[in-house]
Each structure stands twice: as C-alpha cells, then as structure tokens.
Nucleic acid binder design. Sequence first.
DNA 1: CTGAAAGCGCTTACAG
DNA 2: CTGAAAGCGCTTACAG
Lengths: 334, 334
Amino acid sequence: MSARPRRTTLSTIAASAGVSVATVSKVLNGRSDVAPATRSLVRSLLEQHDYVPSSARRTGDTTIEIQVDGMCAYAAGIVGGTVEAGADSGVSVAIAIKKGPAGGGTAWARDLVSAGRQAVITIAEHPTPAQLAILSRARLPVVVIDPLDLSDTSVSSVGPTNFTGGLIATRHLLALGHSRIAYLGGLATALSSQARLHGYRAAMEDAGVPVLPDYVRTPGFCYAHGVEGAGVLLDLRPAPTAIFAASDECAVGAIHAAKARGLRVPEDLSIVGFDDSEIASMTSPKLTTMHQPLREMGIVALRTALRLAAGERIESAHVELATELVIRESSLTA
Amino acid sequence: MSARPRRTTLSTIAASAGVSVATVSKVLNGRSDVAPATRSLVRSLLEQHDYVPSSARRTGDTTIEIQVDGMCAYAAGIVGGTVEAGADSGVSVAIAIKKGPAGGGTAWARDLVSAGRQAVITIAEHPTPAQLAILSRARLPVVVIDPLDLSDTSVSSVGPTNFTGGLIATRHLLALGHSRIAYLGGLATALSSQARLHGYRAAMEDAGVPVLPDYVRTPGFCYAHGVEGAGVLLDLRPAPTAIFAASDECAVGAIHAAKARGLRVPEDLSIVGFDDSEIASMTSPKLTTMHQPLREMGIVALRTALRLAAGERIESAHVELATELVIRESSLTA
DNA sequence: CTGAAAGCGCTTACAG
DNA sequence: CTGAAAGCGCTTACAG
C-alpha cells in the first residue's frame, strides 16, 4: 500500500492558484470582495483537487448515505434495515431520493464527499465510472443493493437470491401438479427479474415442461402491470392454470384480472408472488409468495459499507441473501 | 432578544475544571494519559455545558433528523416528503428509528446536538420536558408530525385534518342513505383517531342519527384489528350497513370480515377508509377513502423546521393539511 | 481586490 | 499525569 497522500487543504489550493490562503477562504465563503477571474480560477482548482473542508472530516459522527428511487414499500424495507444496523454502531443514515438517471452526474459524487459521508448505498443503480473515480479518490466506498450488473467487481453489492427464488416458486407450482405455468411481471431490463425468469425456466426445464413463448410477459412490477399482463395471459387458449408473478403487486393485479374473468383463485388459477410485502397477507386469498429479506439486505449493505470505509477487505464483491417460499392461500393443487 | 451567549468551547470547560485546554482535549479524544479523577470531572463538565465540538457546527451541510417508529407505509410517505423538500434546499435528512418511549431519555437529545443536526422532526411522539430543555439550549427546533397533544404551543406540529376528515367520510355515508354507520379502528389513546371519531360523531349528530355505543370500536390501526373489530360489528343485531374505518388497513380487514360472513361489499356493506395508501386501489372492491397528504405533511414539517432553525417566527404552532374524500368502489347507496 | 497578520478552536509531541 | 508551546486549518478585520 502506498502512503496516503495528504488531503487537499486551503494552502494547497492557494499555492496552485498563486493567491493567498485568505483569498481562497473568501471564495469558499462566497464573499463578494474577490475578482471574478480569481474566483473562477480558485473554484476550478477546488473542484480539480476534490477539496473537502476539514470540518466535514470530523471523526465522531459517521453518516452513510442511501439513495432510493422513491419511498415505496420496497425501499422502505431496505432503508429500515440500514437504519437499524446503523443505530447499533452509532452510525447515522441520510436518505436521498434519486433524480435523473445515474443520480445527477459528477456533482452528485462531489456533494457526497463534501457532505462528509463515509459511504454510499444505492438501490438498483450503479454509479458511472466518472462518479466512481471521484468516490474512490475520496475513499468513499459504494455498495449497490439489487445490482443491475455484476460484471464490475470493484463495486460491492447485495441482493436476494432471485434465480433460486424463481426456481423454488416455480417448483412449488410444478409440485402442485401444474404444467401450464406462466411468468408475469418484472422488466426485461432489470437483472432481478431476469434472474427470476431464468429460475422459472430452469425449473420448467428440469421438470421437462416446455415454456410457451406467450406464457412469458414482462410489463413491469406494478399492480397495473399485473392486471394488464394477467389479462393477456388469461385470454390465451389454452390459458395457464398457474402464474408466477415477479412481485406481490403483480400477483394482486393477477388476482384482480382473474376475478374479473369469473375465475376463482386458487381453485381455477394458482398464483405465487414475490416479495412477501405487507399486502401479501391482506389480500383474499392471502398470497403464497417468495419472501425477500429486505431488512436483512439493508443490514448487510450497511455493515459492508462500514467495513469498506474502515479499510477492511470484503470476502465477496456480491452477496445474495436467501429468499423463502411462504405458502398461504393463493396456490392449490391443479 | 438577549445576546446569544457564546458557545461552549474547550477553554470554557478547561477554565471551570481548573485544567489546561490540552487536558480537556485529551479527555475528548479518549487518550489514556489522563488521571481518572480529572477525566470524570472534565466529562461531567462537558455534559453540563452541552459541549459541541466546533467541527460539528459546520456551516455548509445542513442535516435535519426525522424520528420514525418503523418504516411502515405511513412513515415512508412522510419521510419521502421531507427528503424531497430537503433536496430543494440542499438539506440532508437523517433517519432514526425510535427505540423505547420518548426516544431514549436525555441522551437522545444530547446525541442530536453533538451530531450537528439543525432540527428534529418526530412522528406521533413528543419530546419530554428534559429533552426539550436540552434541544432549546442548543437552539435545535422540534416539529412533531401527527401530534398527540396540542397543549404545549412551544412545540410546532403538523397534521392532517382528522376531525374534518371523519366528518366528511361520515357525511358521505349519510348522503348515500345509510344510518346504521359504525366507527372502526384507531386507538382510544391516539389523538388522530380520537379526532376522526369526533368528526364521525359530529356528522351523525348533525344528521340527527343516534350513535349506538356498540357501533364504536377502537382496537387499533392494523389489518388484523380491522378483521377482528369488523367481525364484532357485523355480528351485532341490527348490524351496521356501513363502516367508517380509521385506516385503510382496517378497511381492508373489514372487507375480509364481511366476505367471510357472506356479505358483499359494497352491496351489503359500505366501507370508507382513511389514508388513501397504495393498497386502497389494489383491493377489490377498490377503497373509498379519505386521502391523507403524507408527502405534503413531510414537506411542510421540513420547511417549518428550517424556518425555525433560521430563527424565523412561525405563524401558527400547529398546522393541519386537508384530507380529501376519494370515492372508489367500496361505498354504495343504502 | 488582495494578502499579512492576528486570532480561534483544536491537537499533539514533548519536557517536566 | 499535566500543561506550555508549536502547529494546523481556517476566518476575518483591516491596511494597502
């Protein structure tokens, strides 16, 4: 390991700008008595050197940042886990809601550094190489939850066992005697649903049951996607007798679509969801679903982030936590 | 306004302890070369003076803290609002999950101060007088969302129009021709559900319809409470033809209890919920419910907190944001 | 506009 | 153990 380079201070900047420390300080504090040319020179130097005020580098208070897409139930579960794990180690968790794609350019990474964060956790989104460069120079580790891409092993990630989950859910339906089993929901672009879909395919193949191309629909994860997608599936001839849905919301939508066609769940149609969210036990019939360990994923992500921040080495760049089949009322013998 | 007393610094502490600044600094940094007696003396002085290291008082990064009970959908909605409003003003939001009652004694307040927070938002829980004293000495404003007690006007609070919401929901059922209307859910101890209940009573009284004591049940806000409470109500003779539930979860539970008794919703039983949470449009029938502006409550709470932190005066210690009736499928003419 | 100088809060190597 | 002294990162009133 090479020696840690000294952090950039005001005097570093002053020296390279050829001005006094006082002037740099004024720029930093937004004083008006600085020539525009001097100001912009100093500003760009400050950026180039990733300047972080020493007061932001305090020792006592550790804060990690978690970036979510919005406060849906899924994100809430994960956030809850990180907060819980943080409280155990006296670490605060700051939440941010992502704006555009890739969290808003390199300014995003720079802001994190100057806000004094010790690590960043993002959900289902990878920082860009430019962002990673800034974060790594600042020694700010990143952990991605539910990663879209596992090829870059320099970024740690945590996810559920999507493939195995899809496999187990489908095997459950096969074991009940179903063979006309459809896959519903998820996005073709989301790694998580791709993996669930491949788990489904693997189980079908194992059982020697062919997968009809029409039996796979990936409109999205929401309730409305479930209603729409299940509608299309149920209007096929022959119609499936069972649906494995990539999310509970989709599964609930499928129940709705089934009832709208006069089908009874589970007597005429078995449905297995994915998530085991709160709604899973509030529907009628209650959902059979794959439990996804959201809270635990948050806990592991936070602990990993903390270990990385402390300079520890991580055993595995990607960790998967077990999903588990919860049998309720929406699945029945064919 | 009296002059702002100077903040406690190491030299304040050193002077009152009769030691040097260096020694105080050592205690602060947990060095071992300090006599135990000196250490404990300095420690207690540090506590007494609410010492906050100057590095925690940085100017650039503003962080407010929001305390939630757990990451349920209700809290998630509010948190989402605060994060959104914070992002607009470059303010970070740190989340904490409450432990015991009153957030864990005075240590809680002290930790907030030394973590450098600029304000605190809590949900449905008031700081104790001892906690308030510490927070006010540190000039750390508190905003309570969904307050349990409005008597202390020194604490700002934000909530939904619970009373009016209960009134409007009940009037809706009255207007549909119902008179055997029951109230279900909420806790007798929660101000929010008390207010909803009184809105219900006011509407009934206005319409000249008596409220039967048996028709009011307050087992709690959850799905299971709804199933249980609605079961009791529906087994009464005469049974109610309509139920106003204090939460969507209760309302969904009531649908379940009704179906279990062979009753059709809304043909045999009308149900109005409260919250307009995600599940409201995922049930069958879809819920007629009072929309609660969670996101907006979060936004207003954060803005209020920021204004207080900036030393501005607030017009009203308590603000209520409008709830709104959303008519879907679970309510029908009697 | 600019910067030398004084000053603040804090830390640390070191002499006692 | 203790503290005088040097030093660090930063800010600010003020002279030019």
